[in-house]
Amino acid sequence: MRDFPVMEQNYERARELMARNGNPTQWGHTFPRPEVVEDDITQHRSILLVDGSGENERILAQFAVCTGEDPTYQTIDGQWLDDDAYVTVHRITASGLVRHAARECLEWTLRKYGNVRIDTHPNNRIMQHVLESCGFTRCGLIELIDRPTDTTRIAYQRHEW
């Protein structure tokens, strides 16, 4: 929880960056809500990419790794690469302090878990580029089940076996 304030700053930076780059609605002004981030921390889903140590430690990127089947991914307009067990990456953002931090997060998740799914907004060209440059396959479209509007997302998957 000691990192929560910096994590919140990173999410605010991401919301501003998305809006400036033609994607103002994916996270809007409030996503992810503070209680979601706090829950990620308490449930041990939050992963931080850091450099330095002690007083000199910097958070370079952050994301949530969710194990188990994601209910949002049960229906897809397209096809997943497989029906094997997977983890889902959610709420990924970089601090802007170094280049390719999001890529490092994705590569770490692939090394640790092997089969990874993730989705992004159709207007999030930056994340689409990151995912495709990391070898993720565009599998189709999914609809978010936790919000009433702006629900379409592009679904990606990559596995290492």
Rank of each mutant, 00 (worst) to 15 (best):
residue 93 T to R: 10
residue 84 D to M: 02
residue 146 D to T: 08
residue 25 T to Q: 11
residue 107 E to W: 09
residue 81 L to C: 07
residue 49 L to F: 03
residue 9 Q to M: 14
residue 125 R to G: 12
residue 37 V to S: 05
residue 58 R to E: 00
residue 79 Q to M: 10
residue 155 A to E: 01
residue 30 T to D: 14
residue 143 E to M: 12
residue 98 V to Q: 08
residue 130 V to L: 08
residue 87 V to D: 07
residue 23 N to W: 05
residue 139 C to A: 10
residue 61 A to D: 02
residue 31 F to S: 14
residue 151 T to V: 13
residue 54 G to E: 09
residue 32 P to I: 13
residue 77 D to L: 10
residue 25 T to P: 01
residue 85 A to C: 10
residue 77 D to V: 05
residue 101 A to L: 00
residue 94 A to H: 05
residue 65 V to T: 06
residue 53 S to I: 03
residue 64 A to Q: 02
residue 46 S to I: 04
residue 43 Q to K: 13
residue 117 R to Q: 05
residue 108 W to R: 09
residue 15 R to P: 02
residue 135 G to S: 06
residue 26 Q to T: 01
residue 50 V to T: 14
residue 18 M to W: 10
residue 19 A to M: 08
residue 100 H to D: 14
residue 106 L to A: 01
residue 48 L to M: 04
residue 97 L to V: 00
residue 137 T to Y: 07
residue 67 T to D: 07
residue 83 D to M: 03
residue 155 A to Y: 06
residue 52 G to F: 08
residue 29 H to I: 12
residue 118 I to R: 00
residue 34 P to M: 13
residue 90 H to L: 08
residue 65 V to Q: 02
residue 81 L to I: 11
residue 11 Y to W: 15
residue 61 A to H: 05
residue 153 R to N: 06
residue 51 D to C: 13
residue 63 F to L: 13
residue 82 D to M: 00
residue 99 R to F: 00
residue 38 E to P: 00
residue 35 E to I: 12
residue 61 A to F: 05
residue 111 R to A: 15
residue 154 I to C: 08
residue 157 Q to Y: 06
residue 112 K to N: 14
residue 15 R to V: 11
residue 78 G to N: 06
residue 78 G to D: 10
residue 142 I to A: 03
residue 83 D to I: 00
residue 48 L to S: 09
residue 71 P to K: 12
residue 151 T to Q: 13
residue 69 E to C: 01
residue 33 R to V: 12
residue 57 E to F: 03
residue 71 P to F: 08
residue 74 Q to V: 11
residue 40 D to V: 05
residue 46 S to P: 00
residue 144 L to E: 10
residue 144 L to R: 13
residue 76 I to R: 01
residue 67 T to E: 15
residue 29 H to G: 12
residue 71 P to M: 11
residue 149 T to F: 08
residue 50 V to C: 14
residue 86 Y to S: 06
residue 7 M to I: 15
residue 3 D to W: 01
residue 112 K to V: 14
residue 141 L to F: 15
residue 140 G to C: 06
residue 70 D to H: 10
residue 137 T to W: 01
residue 1 M to D: 14
residue 125 R to K: 15
residue 45 R to Y: 07
residue 134 C to F: 08
residue 37 V to T: 13
residue 72 T to N: 14
residue 75 T to H: 13
residue 147 R to N: 02
residue 107 E to C: 12
residue 153 R to M: 04
residue 82 D to V: 00
residue 54 G to K: 12
residue 20 R to W: 09
residue 86 Y to R: 04
residue 2 R to Y: 00
residue 98 V to R: 13
residue 5 P to D: 05
residue 80 W to Q: 07
residue 21 N to P: 06
residue 59 I to S: 01
residue 106 L to P: 02
residue 137 T to S: 13
residue 4 F to E: 05
residue 106 L to V: 05
residue 145 I to R: 09
residue 28 G to S: 10
residue 4 F to W: 05
residue 64 A to I: 07
residue 12 E to L: 15
residue 42 T to R: 14
residue 6 V to G: 01
residue 1 M to V: 12
residue 20 R to L: 13
residue 132 E to C: 11
residue 29 H to P: 01
residue 23 N to Q: 07
residue 30 T to K: 12
residue 140 G to V: 03
